[in-house]
């Protein structure tokens, strides 16, 4: 599987939501799509899955344009928060409407998952609780076994055990049926162990797309005596600062070279790694401060 975004922009009603986005995803792997509310994650995914058409640029799946391409769209499933207010079908019938158009749909797996998520087959979809409706969506997403499986905040309304089950099933099913899975999320701390790569969207622009470990290593915290910390960080990108008495701690985003290591030793400073979530939060906080 190869997804290619080439200089994609999306403008509607004179508002540009995505600006010149280019990246390439190659599966099988699990990719985390991160970004704050309104950053453009869902728009990006809706362009990929042909719900909307890019204003400029091209989006391809295995070198085929995805928009109105029967062969391309049948290989993708886009699981997202949906309104089931008027869905009077039973869960089993609703699943069947998806299954008949999904050639790889695994009915036994779907049944097993529904049981695990405690979603009854006989319930009307409109009567499902928010968490159960999300679980049903997740079941459809996983059991469809589409070569490109996309979950956009798919866990909304799920309680902690259900979310845990979701993460485990994503991983288990990925191991058994490797494919390209894109997880768009806010709950980074819960899901970061799943990601192999991260794509971060910031204000409609691609902030970064790289291996998760590489990205995470760009973020580190330096702690020590205030003057030494200032000396070390004077030419670096500081994304967060904390101070307690004479001790200062800064979160830095950028590469860490051998010279940095020598400087660190000379200045008697400590270096520690930061979580993906912390890094993400502070990088996007910086953006908000700029906006203000």
């Amino acid at each position: 599987m190869n997804i290619n975004f080439d200089h994609v922009s999306f403008t509607r009603k004179q508002k540009t939501i995505l600006h010149d986005i280019s990246f390439q995803l190659e599966g099988p792997k699990i990719v985390g799509l991160l970004g704050r509310n309104g950053a453009g994650k869902t728009t990006l995914l809706s362009i990929l899955t042909a719900f909307q058409k890019a204003s400029s640029g091209t989006v391809t799946l295995n070198n085929e344009n995805t928009f109105e391409n029967e062969h391309a769209v049948e290989q993708m499933i886009f699981v997202r928060d949906q309104n089931f207010e008027y869905e009077t079908e039973k869960v089993s019938d609703y699943l069947e409407t998806y299954a008949k158009f999904r050639p790889n749909f695994d009915h036994d797996y779907a049944k097993r998952l529904l049981k695990q998520f405690r979603v009854s087959n006989d319930l009307e979809v409109a009567k499902l609780s928010k968490g159960m409706a999300s679980a049903m969506q997740v079941v459809i997403g996983l059991a469809s076994r589409a070569p490109v499986t996309i979950f956009d905040e798919a866990y909304l309304g799920m309680d902690a055990p259900a979310r845990d089950l979701f993460y485990k099933e994503v991983l288990n099913d990925f191991m058994e049926h490797p494919r390209l899975i894109i997880l768009s999320t806010h709950l980074i701390s819960e899901m970061e162990t799943l990601f192999e790569e991260v794509l971060i969207i910031k204000n409609g622009r691609l902030f970064t797309h790289e291996d998760k470990e590489v990205f995470q290593q760009r973020g580190y915290r330096i702690t020590g005596e205030e003057q030494s910390v200032n000396e070390f960080s004077k030419d670096k990108t500081i994304v967060a600062t904390q101070q307690l008495g004479p001790t200062k701690s800064v979160m830095i985003y950028g590469s860490f070279t051998d010279d940095d290591q020598r400087c660190l030793t000379d200045l008697n400073l400590e270096r520690s790694f930061v979580s993906l979530q912390d890094l993400f939060i502070h990088l996007t906080e910086e953006e908000n401060e700029d906006d203000e």
Partner: peptide, 16 residues
């Protein structure tokens, strides 16, 4: 709306 959304969700096109 409901049908069109459902078609695209099941991996079909607007033409279909």
């Amino acid at each position: 709306g409901g049908f069109l959304n459902h078609y695209l969700s099941t991996g079909l096109t607007r033409r279909i």
